[in-house]
């Protein structure tokens, strides 16, 4: 039974069609990489799945665990277990990471009919998860992402992912702007969180991240849909040959 099933998804921003009949099926335990040149609709896909409201879905369906994902608002998708690691994490002055996560975790728990965590249990959990992505506990008292470096922001995304324990995590260009050390930390975090019940959708422009997060499937996205799928070797081919051949092969036909 698939965890995520996207069929013939067509999405507009304003008058412009960005996704033009996108199909994808993801099963629990799988890691799918979505690669492709800039401007091809990768981040739109991530945004639509997470519940951004500025996009118009004009056709198609998205099922998450057999339920209509598009029918529920962003917060409910998160509570159902969809997690988006943002390409550009937002700074929120004055809201501490700790209070942010406590509010989020307890809202998710409430939705799942679990008791809220008390302060000590929560604290313990935060310290454990912070270690996973090598962030210092002092970050947790600081305002969300405020004054964080690019690498710290991305680590914070993975930390939040660890706290919320999603069933489907979408990493939107998490590797962009990361040095090799931060990239390794982020990838290790993902690998530790991986289990047979969850799945990852890794959106990236470069193959680099896929050296550390080994995908089961690689899809090449171009002009609003997947044009080629394969195993991890497809990523290596893209790394060697670039995207020009994809553009040549598919530009005329779409």
């Amino acid at each position: 039974m698939s965890l995520l099933k996207i069929e013939n998804l067509k999405v507009n921003i304003g008058d412009k069609q960005i996704l033009k009949g996108f199909n994808l099926e993801v099963n629990p335990g799988e890691i799918h990489a979505i690669m492709g040149p800039n401007g091809t609709g990768k981040s739109t896909l991530a945004g639509v799945l997470a519940g951004r409201e500025e996009f118009d879905v004009i056709d198609g369906t998205v099922e998450f665990d057999r339920n209509d994902l598009l029918a529920i608002p962003a917060e409910e998708r998160a509570r159902e277990g969809v997690f988006l690691a943002f390409q550009y994490p937002v700074e929120i002055p004055g809201v501490s990471n700790a209070n942010f996560m406590k509010t989020a975790v307890n809202e998710v728990r409430k939705y799942r009919k679990l008791e809220p965590l008390d302060a000590m249990d929560f604290l313990q959990m935060m310290k454990e998860k912070a270690k996973l992505v090598d962030i210092d506990a002092s970050y947790l008292t600081r305002s969300v992402n405020e004054g964080f470096s690019g690498g710290e922001k991305k680590k914070n995304e993975i930390f939040q992912m660890a706290m919320l324990d999603p069933r489907l995590a979408i990493l939107d260009e998490t590797d962009s702007g990361l040095d090799i050390d931060a990239l390794k930390v982020v990838a290790e975090g993902v690998n530790k969180l991986r289990n047979p019940n969850n799945a990852f959708l890794v959106i990236t422009h470069y193959q680099r991240l896929l050296n550390y997060i080994i995908p089961d499937f690689v899809h090449v996205m171009f002009n609003g849909k997947i044009v080629k799928s394969g195993g991890k070797e497809l990523a290596l081919q893209l790394e060697e040959q670039g995207y020009d051949w994809i553009k040549k092969e598919f530009n005329g036909s779409i």
């Binding site: 519940g51 962003a74 917060e75 998160a78």
Partner: peptide, 27 residues
């Protein structure tokens, strides 16, 4: 209120009302 920040909080499972409240309290 910053809409992108509100979306960020909601994308973590926080209701829109609580997201607003968190940001206003911080303000």
């Amino acid at each position: 209120l910053d809409k992108e920040a509100l979306f960020y909080l909601r994308a973590r499972g926080i209701s829109e009302d609580n997201a607003r409240a968190l940001m206003l309290n911080a303000f």
